[in-house]
Design a protein around this nucleic acid. Structure first.
Length: 264
DNA sequence: ATCTATTCCTGGCTGC
DNA sequence: TGCAGCCAGGAATAGA
């Protein structure tokens, strides 16, 4: 599933193809994934390609008016410029110069949204995990009273983390997913911040994790799944201590951790 | 404020 | 081989 590192990889892949180019035409095939008048993007020039948490923002300009195309890939969304459209291609964007950008999404949890201004929903999301300072993270983290895992998944606390990288970061920081945020010592909260930064940075360097349908915009798979320590490794030995990795439900999410290394 | 359950959806898997 | 049933889960939503 596309989380911060996967979306970052896609953004880096499509940015050079889109920046400065005009969207010449748009074909929308599945109304379910379309929000607002996405068709209006045709004729606009792409002046920015950004990641916002797990969202992709295409900043558009036409004359003096600006707008955005907001892409969220949900669970199985893809943004690709290679390959051919198929039964899961829900939108096609014809880009000046001949490239066609495909929006594919098997489960249709993703959305393609037209926005005149950045939606308030996005403004309300928490800070970027790779931008927030350690001090600020520790302060925010310890001021909340919540289980650690649901808090990290909460996009209004931090934007961009999902199930994979929360499990992996908690393993690296040796924190139990059911630990209470306000009961963690500042040193441990700081260690969690460093674990988050490191796991996200490494994952970006490896092109993200291809666990279900994720591929980059050129169709290439990421390789960070080969470096997962706990995610979907139930029963496998913990790389640190050898104990069997366990899977439990936390906030009705599949959660993987080492019962020996990760204490409450 | 924080929690859980439900909804959307398809493909992959299990078991008969 | 076929098929029903279940599961995965991001995020919005409802309700506790």
């Amino acid at each position: 599933m596309p989380e911060l590192p996967e979306v970052e990889t896609i953004v880096r892949g499509v940015a050079p193809l889109l920046l400065g180019r005009r969207i010449e035409w748009i074909e929308l095939r599945q109304p379910r994934v379309v929000v607002g008048e996405v068709n209006r993007a045709a004729g606009h020039r792409v002046i920015g390609v950004r990641r916002w948490g797990k969202h992709i923002l295409l900043d558009l300009r036409r004359g003096r008016s600006t707008a955005h195309l907001v892409v969220h890939l949900g669970m199985t969304g893809q943004l690709r410029w290679d390959g051919d459209p198929g039964r899961h291609t829900h939108a096609l964007l014809g880009i000046e110069g001949g490239i066609t950008l495909l929006y594919n999404d098997i489960r249709q949890f993703g959305r393609l949204e037209w926005a005149e201004r950045l939606p308030a929903r996005l403004e309300r999301l928490g800070p970027e995990p790779l931008e927030i300072s350690e001090e600020e993270f520790v302060r925010r983290f310890r001021s909340r009273r919540s289980m650690v895992k649901p808090l990290l998944l909460n996009q209004s606390f931090l934007r961009g983390l999902g199930n994979i990288y929360v499990d992996e970061a908690l393993f690296r920081a040796r924190i139990h997913p059911r630990a209470q945020s306000h009961r963690l010592r500042p040193r441990r909260a700081a260690a969690l911040h460093r674990a988050i930064v490191r796991v996200l940075t490494e994952a970006i360097e490896h092109g993200g994790s291809s666990v279900s349908d994720y591929v980059a915009s050129d169709g290439r798979r990421g390789s960070f799944q080969l470096r997962h320590n706990v995610y979907r490794r139930t029963g496998c030995p913990c790389p640190a201590c050898g104990a069997a990795i366990r899977r439990i439900l936390v906030a009705s999410r599949g959660t993987h951790f080492c019962p020996r290394c990760q204490r409450v």
